[in-house]
Design a protein around this nucleic acid. Structure first.
Lengths: 155, 155
DNA sequence: TATTTTATCTCACGAGATAAGATATTTATT
DNA sequence: AATAAATATCTTATCTCGTGAGATAAAATA
């Protein structure tokens, strides 16, 4: 049975299921990346956040992840031990710990893991023109807004 | 700066970032659902898999999740204690443990959590005609195939 | 200066995952 | 049929990591 001949209702059902599978696959991909890097999921997620926000304080990382400061200390310990990041005291406020990224290590270890993925995604993108990309982008933005809104309602 | 006037390169960058944010938000949504249900992430994920595959054996769950059989025993113990599922011996092979779902409990506890979410998704869908849904569906399928393929390469 | 607040770290504890091996049952071999 | 091997699940010791409470050090405030 092709997707072409489905009723609207069936189509939406199928789409919902695909969305669900997509998110499962996304989660598994991230787990596999983490494992490949020798990091647990938590540390990988934190490193991801750090890479998008460095230099940043330990407290900011705790705030953004929802972890306790004690847990964050452990995360930074492990990431520092694996030499992905290093600590530095904030000269203006010596209570603060600034997390810096060891870019050389990141580029050497992490980029290769994503090379093949990035390439495949690029190839996929090539199938779409600008207008289509914008259409897909808009869908993602709307969906994400729903996810965020519904997450908030659950808390 | 509107998305309308971006170069192709910038557009793809933005899209990539949105994909990344989308997956982060997805993961957080699932965590929040689990918390709302009083389950840890692992148990929630497993329950999800069970719901899509029941009745199924404990071993199959171990295989599908990648957990050890020992860990799966713990998962089923907790899900059974929370009365989402129950164990049954396979009459044809009494070594096997069949996991059954307590549908009454699932409908009572889990469906309400998704009611608002489903409603919002429905409303989003109403913005799209069948052809557009199929276009989005196709994109998700292709993206998921890439995720699956790249996950495999990492192992 | 003394007090309070802030940022991070330490530590005891608990949840949950693994690895190895025990147990029960089925399948294969002689 | 009896014995051995394989299979499915569970048990247990051990390890990792997150939390909560409180310690420590620096900064802000009175």
């Amino acid at each position: 049975m092709s997707i072409e001949n489905l009723s609207r209702e069936k189509l939406l059902e199928l789409f919902n299921e695909e969305l669900r599978n997509f998110s499962t696959e996304t989660i598994m991909f991230h787990q596999n990346v983490a494992e490949k890097l020798g990091l647990n999921s938590t540390d990988h997620k934190c490193l991801d956040i750090i890479l998008q926000n460095y230099p940043m304080t330990a407290g900011k990382l705790a705030e953004m992840t929802g972890f306790t400061t004690g847990a964050v200390t452990g995360v930074i310990d492990r990431l520092e031990k694996a030499s992905y990041v290093y600590r530095d005291k904030d000269p203006n406020d010596r209570r603060r710990v600034i997390i810096h990224v060891n870019l050389e290590k990141v580029e050497k270890e992490i980029l290769p893991v994503f090379t093949s993925f990035s390439q495949s995604i690029r190839e996929l993108f090539e199938k779409y023109n600008d207008q289509e990309i914008k259409f897909l982008f808009d869908f993602l933005v709307r969906s994400r807004a729903i996810l965020r809104e519904e997450s908030k309602k659950l808390r």
